[in-house]
Lab assay of single mutants.
Amino acid sequence: MVYKIRDKETGKVYEVTIDEETNEITVYDVKTGKPVKTVNMTIEELKEAGYEVEPV
Rank of each mutant, 00 (worst) to 15 (best):
M1E: 07
V2Q: 13
V2H: 15
V2D: 13
V2E: 06
Y3F: 11
I5G: 00
I5P: 00
I5K: 00
I5D: 00
R6H: 07
D7L: 03
D7Q: 06
D7W: 03
K8F: 05
K8N: 05
E9M: 13
E9R: 14
E9L: 14
T10A: 01
T10S: 09
T10W: 01
T10D: 03
G11S: 03
G11F: 02
G11A: 02
G11L: 03
K12I: 14
K12W: 08
V13L: 07
V13Y: 10
V13P: 01
Y14I: 03
Y14R: 00
Y14T: 01
E15R: 09
E15T: 15
V16S: 01
V16L: 09
V16E: 00
V16C: 13
I18Y: 15
I18F: 14
I18V: 14
D19I: 06
E20W: 14
E20L: 13
E21H: 12
T22P: 01
N23I: 05
N23M: 08
N23L: 07
E24G: 05
E24S: 14
E24H: 11
I25Q: 01
I25R: 00
I25E: 00
T26P: 00
T26C: 05
V27G: 04
Y28N: 04
D29P: 01
V30T: 13
V30I: 13
V30Q: 11
K31Q: 14
K31F: 14
T32L: 05
T32I: 03
T32P: 01
T32N: 07
T32Q: 03
T32W: 04
T32K: 01
K34H: 11
K34E: 10
K34V: 09
P35I: 14
P35W: 12
P35R: 11
V36R: 03
V36H: 05
K37Y: 14
K37Q: 08
T38I: 10
T38N: 06
T38R: 11
V39T: 05
N40E: 08
N40K: 14
N40A: 12
N40R: 14
M41N: 03
I43N: 01
E45I: 06
E45Q: 13
E45A: 09
E45F: 06
E45P: 00
L46S: 00
L46D: 00
A49M: 14
A49G: 07
A49S: 11
G50Q: 03
Y51F: 10
Y51P: 01
E52H: 07
E52Q: 06
V53R: 02
V53K: 02
V53W: 07
E54Q: 08
P55L: 13
P55H: 08
P55Q: 10
V56G: 09
